[in-house]
């Protein structure tokens, strides 16, 4: 099979980009979308042209590095699957496929299809962790966790932070990502001490990065490669409201030490 690609080419942050059409060589239907791009790049390199830059790492759907909006849907045509596990057999011979980077103001395009997702790291650093002393692993079951909560926390923890939710949202909102990170820890006993501090810090950072707001269109959950649901956004909304009502803690002289 052969397909025609319309790929967004952009030299760097400051140069405006444009679409360029590429005819692929003969492809195997069992190639992943990224392998197809590798083949196209090999051809470009042989011709002395600049290869198409795209993000990839584990290629087994777990690292969250691959991106791409393929024909108007982040991560390609399937549900619950990342670009790296989208195979060429999902397309027809002779298809024209648009390949675009994730587009959002906080996801600045570095080159071609590669965008800067450090804003997600900064949101995580603002509160997406629990403060515990490291050391030997604690005894299993020393802290009881209800099975329902651990299942739900695992659903949220599946988020690989790829940014497809932002790419799909008409408002470029990062709420599904932030909600997954907030709820993941908020559902577990270990996350309780910092639960309300965390949600405020992460939402504040999310706003600072310049993401849009949630209009409950549901396109984020439709494209999420880990099928994270809007339920978690509601959970975050509830936690944030409680956090606002609780107010900020009283400042303690000397830091309370």
């Amino acid at each position: 099979m052969k397909v025609t690609l319309k790929v967004w080419r952009q030299k760097n942050k400051s140069t405006p980009g444009e679409f360029k059409a590429y005819q692929t060589p003969e492809l195997n239907g069992n190639m992943s979308f990224l392998e197809m791009l590798d083949v196209v790049n090999e051809g470009l390199a042989n011709k002395g042209e600049e290869p198409i830059a795209f993000d990839h790492d584990c290629r087994e759907g777990i690292c969250g590095t691959c991106s791409l909006v393929i024909d108007g849907k982040p991560h390609g045509p399937h549900q619950g699957i990342a670009t790296c596990q989208t195979y060429m057999r999902s397309f027809e011979d002779g298809d024209e496929i648009y390949v675009e980077p994730f587009r959002a103001a906080p996801f600045e395009i570095i080159k071609d299809l590669v965008c800067d997702r450090k804003s997600f790291d900064r949101i995580q650093q603002a509160g997406g962790f629990i403060t515990v002393r490291t050391g030997a692993a604690p005894d299993a079951n020393s802290i009881p966790v209800p099975k329902d909560n651990s299942d739900l926390a695992m659903d949220a923890a599946q988020c690989i932070g790829c940014g497809a939710c932002v790419a799909a949202c008409k408002n470029a909102s990062a709420m599904l990502f932030v909600a997954a990170k907030v709820s993941h820890l908020g559902l577990l006993p270990q996350g309780q001490p910092e639960r309300f501090k965390r949600v405020k810090a992460m939402v504040d950072q999310m706003d600072k990065e310049g993401f849009g707001s949630c209009s409950v269109t549901g396109s984020c959950e439709a494209v999420c490669p880990k099928s994270i649901t809007l339920d978690f956004i509601a959970m975050m909304n509830r936690d944030y409201a409680v956090a606002l009502l609780k107010g900020d803690p009283k400042p303690i002289a000397g830091g309370g030490a």
Partner: peptide, 9 residues
């Protein structure tokens, strides 16, 4: 985006 789908919205 140049090509866009509603993606469930």
């Amino acid at each position: 985006y140049a090509k866009w789908k509603e993606n469930g919205a």
